[in-house]
Amino acid sequence: MRNPLIIERVRTISGSFAFIEHRFLRHGFWSSLSHQELLLYFFLVMVADRQGLSFYSYDKICTLLTINVDEYILARDGLLSKNLLAFDGTLFQVLSLPPEPVHQTRLLQNEEDMRREDPATIHQLVRQFKEGRT
């Protein structure tokens, strides 16, 4: 066993409770998530209680993570579909890790897919609508 570099600063759990299984990295969960999904997942792990529950609202989450609502929705829905998170509309639960990560690689194949799925395209369409250019 190695000795800590700074003995006075060894981490301990003294207040809230948060942990990430090492399997999250070793088994490919990390690489299966987008940047926004990782950000939201780690935030929810950090603020959750021992059962993984958190009551943060979407506007507070967006403000704290400096992401917009579209990014939040995509990240939340991605975590739900990857079986890492449960959500009832007001309450989040970070779930225990499933046996293997869910990799979703559905390719966008046409203009309709781009309008419906691509965040950059969606953002561009919303901006054009707001500017009255549609």
Rank of each mutant, 00 (worst) to 15 (best):
M1R: 05
I6V: 15
I7R: 09
E8D: 04
E8S: 09
R9P: 02
R9Y: 12
V10N: 10
R11Y: 13
R11T: 14
R11D: 13
S14G: 14
S14W: 10
G15W: 14
S16L: 02
A18N: 12
I20A: 15
I20V: 15
I20M: 15
E21P: 08
E21L: 10
E21C: 08
H22C: 08
R23M: 00
R26C: 10
H27Q: 12
H27S: 09
G28I: 11
F29M: 02
S31H: 12
S31P: 03
S31C: 09
S32E: 04
S32V: 07
S32L: 06
S32A: 15
S32G: 05
S34P: 13
H35T: 10
Q36P: 01
Q36I: 06
E37R: 13
L38V: 11
L38Q: 13
L38Y: 01
L39T: 12
L39D: 03
Y41K: 03
F42W: 09
F43D: 11
M46C: 12
M46T: 14
D49S: 04
R50I: 10
R50Y: 05
Q51D: 13
L53W: 00
L53F: 03
L53G: 00
L53S: 00
Y56L: 05
S57W: 02
Y58D: 06
D59V: 14
K60F: 03
C62Q: 08
C62T: 09
T63A: 12
L64G: 00
L64D: 08
T66K: 11
I67D: 02
N68C: 11
D70T: 07
E71C: 01
E71T: 03
E71S: 07
E71Y: 01
A75D: 09
R76I: 04
L79F: 06
L80V: 14
L80K: 12
S81E: 07
K82H: 06
L84T: 05
L85H: 09
L85F: 08
A86T: 13
F87H: 13
D88R: 02
G89R: 06
G89F: 04
T90I: 09
F92W: 10
V94E: 01
S96T: 15
S96D: 15
S96W: 06
L97T: 04
P98G: 05
E100V: 12
E100Q: 13
E100S: 12
E100L: 11
P101R: 11
P101L: 09
H103S: 07
H103A: 05
Q104D: 12
Q104W: 08
T105L: 09
L108P: 01
Q109A: 12
Q109K: 15
N110M: 12
D113W: 03
D113L: 03
M114Y: 08
R116S: 09
R116Q: 14
E117M: 11
E117K: 11
E117N: 11
D118G: 04
P119Y: 00
P119N: 00
T121L: 02
H123C: 00
Q124R: 10
L125I: 11
R127W: 02
Q128C: 06
Q128A: 14
F129L: 03
K130T: 07
G132R: 08
T134K: 06
T134C: 07
